[in-house]
Design a protein around this nucleic acid. Sequence first.
DNA 1: GTTTTTAAATTAAACGTTTGTTTAATTTTG
DNA 2: CAAAATTAAACAAACGTTTAATTTAAAAAC
Lengths: 209, 209
Amino acid sequence: MIYNDKQLQIIGTAERLFANKGFDGTSVRDIADEAGVNIAMISYYFGSKEKLMEALFSKRSSDINLQVETLLHNEEIAPLQKMESLVDSYIDKVMQKQQFFKIMICEQVINKNPVIISLIHDLKKKNTEAINKLIKDGQQKGAFKKNIDVLLLINTLIGSITQMMLTSDYYKEYNGLQDIPEDQFFEQVKEKMSKHVKFLFKALLTYEV
Amino acid sequence: MIYNDKQLQIIGTAERLFANKGFDGTSVRDIADEAGVNIAMISYYFGSKEKLMEALFSKRSSDINLQVETLLHNEEIAPLQKMESLVDSYIDKVMQKQQFFKIMICEQVINKNPVIISLIHDLKKKNTEAINKLIKDGQQKGAFKKNIDVLLLINTLIGSITQMMLTSDYYKEYNGLQDIPEDQFFEQVKEKMSKHVKFLFKALLTYEV
DNA sequence: GTTTTTAAATTAAACGTTTGTTTAATTTTG
DNA sequence: CAAAATTAAACAAACGTTTAATTTAAAAAC
C-alpha cells in the first residue's frame, strides 16, 4: 500500500497519539486537529479509526523486520558476533521506534483486533526464523550449544528491552541521571542494554546447564 | 483502606475489564452491569472511574510485594537458592495476577495518571530493595560476583515473564500445545520460565564477564 | 419489644459532553 | 469539465457524572 503525504501525516500523528494516550484514549478529532486535517478526512482515507490503526500497524510492521541474510552468509564473522550484531540492531529499532512498540504492547494486552494480532504474529514468526537461522548456523559450526529454546531467547531479548523502555524514568532517577541531556541518556541506556543482553545471549547460546 | 463486599466486587470486575479492554475501552456501564450494581454506585463508592482505577491499583499493589526477610535470615539456604526461590515466587505472582500485571503494563505505557505512576514507583523500589538485600548477602558470602546491576537484573526478570504472558498464544502454537488443557499449559509455561530465568540469574550473579 | 428517627444504600432518569461516522455542499486539482 | 479533495454541519449513540426520590438497615427512643 502506498500513501500520499497527507495520509502519511495522519498515520504519523495517530502513531504518536495512540502511543501516548492509547487507542481508545485518542479521539479522531485529536488526530485530525494535530495532523491539521479535517475530521472527515480520516474516514475518507482510511474508512474508520480502527482501520487507520490497522493501516499504521501494517505500515510500521514492514519497517522493523530483522534482516539476517547478509549477516548469515558472511563467513568472516563468528556466529556469536553475528548474534551480537543482531541484538544491537534490535535495540536500535526499539529505541528508534518506541512509539510503535508501545502501541504493539498495548494491542497485545488487549488482544482484540484480529488484523493486528495477525500482523504481530507474522512479525514474531519472521524474527523467530531469522534468529533460528543464526542459531542453526552457530550450532553447525560448534560455536553454540544444542537445545536452545529460541522463543525463550527472543522473549528475554524483547522483554528486557521493552521493560527498560517502560521504566527508563525509574532507571534514570535510580542512577542519578536526571540532569544529563535526553539524547545522552538515550545513548547510555542503549550501551548498557547492549552489553547486558549480549552477556545474556552468550550465556544462553554457549554455556551448558 | 477497607472495602465492603460490594466495593470489592466492583474492584474485581473493573480489574477484569480494564485488563481485557483497557481503561478507556471500558465504560462505567460495563463495570456496573457485570458487577450487578447500579451505575451510580461507582461514583457513590469511589468518586469517579479514574479513582476506581486508583483504588484497584492501590489494593492490588499491596498484595504483590516480594517478601524477602524470612528468606534472608535463613542461613541454611545458599544465596543462589534464595534468589531462585524469589524468582519462583515472582513467577507465581505474575501468573496468578495476570490481569493486574496487564493493567500495570498499559498504565506504564500511557504514563499519565500520577497516582498510579507513583504506586508503580513504590512497588519497583520495594522490589529493588528486596533483591538488593539478597545480592549484598550473596556477595558478602562470596557466592555472587561484584558489580551486579540490580535494575538490569530485575528488568530481565520482569521483562522475560511479562513477554511470555503477552505472547503465550504464540508460544503455545509454536510448540504444538493447542490441545492440552489450559491449566496444564499454565504449569508447563511456569516450569519452563522458572528454569530459564534461574539460568539467566545464575549467569548474571556468578559468571564473570 | 415496638416504634420512631437517622443514616446509608440503591434506584431510574436526566445532565451536558464527547464519541465515530456520514452527509451534502464546496473547492481544488489534473 | 470530471474526479478527487476538503469542508462545516449534523447524526445518533455512548460517555462519565449527578440528581432527587425511594428503599433498606441500623440506632435511638419509648
